[in-house]
Amino acid sequence: MAFFALIGREVRLAWRQGNSSAMAVTFFLVAVTLFPLGIGPELSVLARISAGVIWVAALLSALLTLDRLFQQDFEDGSLDLLALAPMPMELIVLAKSIAHWLTTGLPLVVAAPLLAVLLNMDSGGLGILMLSLAIGTPALSLTGAIGAALTVTVRRGGVLMPLLILPLYVPTLIFGVGAVDAVLNNIVAGPNLLYLGALSLVALALAPFAAAAAIRLALE
């Protein structure tokens, strides 16, 4: 019960404090818009790179809101109070990661088809793009929680965190783009999606423990 209350608190905070969901989606839009401006408006080229560009932009947008995951609660002391609560730190981390996915990952999934149209992706790829993002983005939130927890005491953690986390995002990116490109090239996307799901499940099983250990260390 307290678990869901915590998720609710996080979602409400994200919604009311400058609405981080809207910021993440806006960043997603702007970042993707830069690619046609940088590469040129040739539709065949854009269609070819669309899946990769959208996935990379989603990765960066997820990073953008991650540094808030523990930092604010650490600074105003609510993290100390949460640590005193009977709920284990692992579940607190999990609740915060779920809230992060609800406020960042899910909006990106919803916004992705719009960007796919902008990049001239074949309409057959829209469904699989949303599906792959829906399966893959939980891994981004969960793995990202480790980076956010490790850098919570670092003064300029927002700069350090991407360096720690982005290399760990490589497999998610590869299988996510792989699934979309497979469908666009009329190949089965199944294996890619299964690996993507496996990554999210492994992150779900292990990341809360690593992040909780890092948070306990920060609160010592």
């Binding site: 720690l164 292990l206 250990a213 890092a214 260390l217």
Partner: peptide, 25 residues
């Protein structure tokens, strides 16, 4: 030292996964 150790273990779990995914890619 403790934070770096946690990161090193997370990285060690990821190294084979990254290797596999890059080969796949």
């Amino acid at each position: 030292s403790k934070a770096a150790a946690i990161l090193a273990l997370v990285g060690a779990i990821n190294v084979p996964i990254i290797k596999f995914s890059v080969d796949w890619w």
